[in-house]
């Protein structure tokens, strides 16, 4: 019982006192302290992702077809951590390693989407309905609003593209943002009412 109640009480007490001290300048020191505590506690929880990742890949070591990949990942992970702890992240070797791996790979992996988006344009963007057609036409105008060739072909393209971005798009995104904000608030309220405990995970 207490295994769920104590965490629940903590979230209510911390949350409501945070709101209150943010509202009353006299006791704002409490909020400033909690801000700092939040940062410190997240910093010390930083290993959690790496542990989950290691667990998955240590388990994979038993599967021959995954062995080489999981070994590589584990070596890359722990090699980086050990090197960083010995050298600090400012060490020369660490910096070289980092610049050789993360910097190009992050971008290269994401840039694959440039290829996929091009084939998607050919294969899936079909004017199947009025709605899909509206989407496609808006996409074309905004695309050419973004690059110089649009204005070079016809001066109207950037004007229409900007209008689509500024007016209908803003209206749609505004309503969606409002809905999302209401939804987020309702979730927070459910936390404080004790109706939402999924964040505590499963189990008793």
């Amino acid at each position: 019982m207490y295994r769920r109640t104590i965490p629940f009480i903590i979230s209510i007490v911390i949350g409501l006192s945070y709101i209150l001290s943010g509202a009353l300048p006299e006791i704002s020191a409490w909020k400033n302290l909690l801000d700092k505590w939040f940062q410190i506690s997240t910093a010390f929880a930083v290993l959690i992702g790496a542990i989950s990742l290691s667990m998955v890949h240590f388990r994979n070591l038993r599967r021959p077809e995954r062995l080489i990949y999981s070994t590589t990942l584990i070596i890359a992970l722990y090699g980086t951590v050990v090197l960083g702890l010995i050298q600090t992240s400012k060490g020369e070797l660490y910096q070289t390693w980092y610049n050789m791996t993360i910097v190009p790979l992050e971008a290269a992996i994401l840039s694959q989407i440039a290829f996929y988006i091009t084939t998607a344009a050919f294969r899936v963007l079909r004017m199947r309905s009025l709605e899909a057609s509206l989407m496609l036409i808006a996409a074309v105008f905004v695309m050419f609003y973004n690059v110089p060739v649009g204005a070079a072909v016809w001066q109207g393209i950037p004007v229409i593209g900007k209008w689509l971005m500024d007016i209908p798009n803003t209206a749609a995104m505004r309503a969606i943002t409002m809905g999302a904000a209401l939804g987020a608030s309702a979730t927070a309220i459910r936390v404080f009412l004790g109706l939402e405990r999924s964040y505590l995970g499963g189990g008793e």
Binding site: A120, V124, R126, A132, M135, A139
Partner: peptide, 17 residues
């Protein structure tokens, strides 16, 4: 946009909730 164009049906935003 990618879902709408390639899926047969897409639940948009709050519709999904």
């Amino acid at each position: 946009p990618f879902m709408i164009s390639s899926c047969d049906y897409t639940l948009i935003g709050e519709e999904f909730y």
